[in-house]
Amino acid sequence: MSVALSMGLETVLYHGYEATGDVTGFPNIGTYLIFGVILVPIYIMVISWFAGEPRDTKTGLLGVSYLVGIAAQMWIGMFILTVIIGLVFYGGMPEPLGAAGPSNDSPIFGFL
């Protein structure tokens, strides 16, 4: 009975979504939308720092370093949070680091 209940809970939690075949996050449509459309104003801003008048290369490089630092902080923080959530609630590392798909020996199903 415990196995049947566990499989039933997995069906409810995962809603039939399968693993993305070791490409979680890339190169799905959201990636193209974010980097190709939404970030266009940022691209224009960075290009204008170096191609516009008056040019100040030192300030432009400072701005680029700020943008890289903020982006790295967000991506690294979310990566660490994703790993913690995967370990605590799903019993293993997320898909690019661990096995694809749901795990039957997850701690969330351990009480069943």
Rank of each mutant, 00 (worst) to 15 (best):
S2Y: 07
A4I: 11
A4F: 14
S6G: 07
S6T: 15
M7S: 08
G8V: 03
L9G: 00
E10M: 06
T11N: 06
V12S: 03
L13Q: 01
L13S: 01
Y14I: 07
G16N: 12
Y17I: 03
E18L: 01
E18Q: 11
E18A: 00
T20E: 00
G21F: 01
D22S: 15
D22L: 15
V23N: 14
V23K: 13
T24E: 06
G25A: 04
I29V: 03
I29W: 11
G30E: 13
T31I: 05
Y32W: 07
Y32H: 05
G36C: 14
I38K: 01
P41Y: 08
V46I: 15
W49D: 04
F50R: 09
A51D: 05
E53K: 15
R55I: 00
T57N: 09
K58D: 02
G60I: 10
L61W: 13
L62W: 06
G63F: 11
G63I: 09
V64R: 13
Y66R: 14
Y66G: 00
L67G: 00
V68C: 08
G69N: 07
G69A: 08
I70Q: 01
A71W: 11
A72K: 04
Q73R: 08
Q73Y: 13
M74H: 11
W75K: 01
I76D: 13
G77S: 01
M78W: 15
F79N: 05
I80R: 10
I80H: 06
L81E: 02
T82Q: 14
T82H: 13
T82N: 15
I84C: 10
I85C: 04
L87S: 10
V88I: 14
F89D: 15
Y90L: 05
Y90G: 01
G92M: 01
P94K: 07
P94I: 09
E95D: 10
G98M: 06
A100F: 09
N104T: 10
N104H: 10
N104V: 01
N104K: 10
D105F: 15
P107H: 04
P107E: 04
P107Q: 07
F109E: 07
